[in-house]
């Protein structure tokens, strides 16, 4: 995939080096732990992502340049997936963000299964809300 940042390329390398699901899970947890904490004050009903059973908050920082999403989740593995998503889009402008092939990105990481349309996983709902926020921007 072209246009990957150095950090994103490193993540692809790390995930592709995982031989077993346990290693992938542990790596995902590490990524989740690196995600910046969203202050309690921003964990408001307005910022909740609807459509996932796990509570996820998502905000678009309108002031930041380049654009910057902030996310939080109660579940640690989902937090890892969100961190990897942010890694992929950080530094891009709105038009570029919308054009990112998220399915391809998670496939590269060997995490395709986590993009299921099922409600139980919040990632798909997060993507929809991201698109909506970008469209409003």
């Amino acid at each position: 995939m072209s246009g990957l940042s150095r950090a994103a390329q490193q993540a692809v390398h790390d995930f592709q080096s995982c031989q077993q699901w346990e290693q992938r899970a542990r790596l995902l947890l590490q990524w989740g732990a690196q995600l910046d904490e969203l202050p309690e004050a921003l964990r408001t009903p307005d910022n909740l992502v609807h459509g996932c059973e796990t509570r996820v908050w998502l905000l678009l920082d309108q002031q930041a340049d380049p654009l910057c999403f902030q996310v939080a989740s109660e579940a640690r593995l989902l937090r890892g997936l969100l961190a990897l998503l942010l890694l992929r889009i950080t530094g891009l402008n709105a038009k570029q963000m919308v054009e990112v092939d998220v399915a391809e990105w998670f496939a590269l990481l060997g995490l395709s299964r986590q993009l299921s349309p099922s409600r139980s996983n919040g990632l798909t709902a997060v993507l929809l809300k991201m698109q909506a926020l970008l469209a409003q921007n």
């Binding site: 699901w21 899970a25 059973e53 796990t54 109660e74 579940a75 640690r76 593995l77 989902l78 986590q114 409600r119 139980s120 996983n121």
Partner: peptide
């Protein structure tokens, strides 16, 4: 432990249980 973390790792191991509300 958040139920969805546990559910995800059970799913990785081929165990189909329900998680959520």
């Amino acid at each position: 432990i958040h139920h969805s973390d546990l559910a995800l790792l059970l799913g990785e191991q081929g165990v189909a249980v329900r998680a959520g509300h």
